[in-house]
């Protein structure tokens, strides 16, 4: 309430956010990349990545977060994720079937580089979900501001 000029929450929240937000992002990326080995995967990791940006926005205000990832960029990333997923599926035609796991044989099981196209699909889903969820959050916030102006 005191610092009306500076957007966002108090100094304590900001400091804690500065410390944790990177960790949250890293944890999200970890979950995405290990999606084929441990619980989690593209959707859960994408949500965590989106949450790190939402966290940033809550603590520092709208502008800081939008400078890192603007709404147009988010929607472009979202479409790219969807297209990537579709093209991975289409590449399966190389093996003869739609969605065919065409290099499943490479790599040893339970390694990071294994499971063929599943990690690729996870990354695509993560892009789609992360960017999409962030865009949804921004859109809902913009609604609120629109109403205040009136």
């Amino acid at each position: 309430m005191e610092n009306k000029k500076e957007p966002g929450m108090t100094l304590i929240v900001k400091t804690i956010t500065r410390l944790t937000v990177g960790l949250i992002l890293l944890y999200g990326i970890y979950i995405v990349l290990h999606g084929h080995l441990t619980p989690g995967g593209g959707f859960a990791g994408g949500v965590i990545i989106a949450l790190s940006f939402v966290h940033l926005m809550l603590a520092f205000g709208r502008e800081t977060a939008l400078k890192k990832l603007s709404q147009t960029k988010a929607s472009i990333l979202e479409s790219l994720g969807a297209l990537m997923f579709l093209s991975v599926a289409l590449l399966g035609f190389l093996g003869g079937f739609f969605f065919f796991n065409f290099f499943a044989q490479k790599g040893t099981p339970f390694d990071l580089f294994s499971a063929g196209i599943i990690p690729l699909c996870n990354i695509a889903i993560c892009l789609k979900v992360g960017a999409g969820l962030f865009a949804i959050f921004v859109a809902l916030i913009l609604f609120k501001n629109l109403k205040k102006k009136e």
């Binding site: 859109a139 809902l140 609604f143 629109l146 109403k147 009136e150």
Partner: peptide, 8 residues
């Protein structure tokens, strides 16, 4: 989103 718009 629809609810917010309806409220508007």
């Amino acid at each position: 989103a629809i609810a917010i718009r309806l409220y508007e």
